[in-house]
Amino acid sequence: MLKYEYDHNVIQVNEIENGNDVEFRIHILQEEPYLDGIKKVQKEFEENDVYTDVLFYIYASHEYRVIVRRDYYEDFILELMKQRLLQSVKWSE
């Protein structure tokens, strides 16, 4: 399992398990440069060959609902890290 940390002043992340998926609610609080970051994460998963790995739903005020297939959980978290939306990621027991 991955544990991650983020700056609460720039982003809010909530995740819940839902069957075979993990659902995230991500609220971008600081537009620059984090909105571009989440858009890059979305583009990364929309342009690959798998249609149901990570699905993005965009709401008002830069709020995102993201449904992540369990087998793509690590890929998604690492992509958030790559785009600097997270500050740290580590393996936990």
């Binding site: 998926d21 249609y51 699905l55 739903y57 449904i67």
Partner: peptide, 11 residues
Amino acid sequence: MVPVTFSITRQ
């Protein structure tokens, strides 16, 4: 249409 159908039905 297929990718957007997966997106809507999953939601």
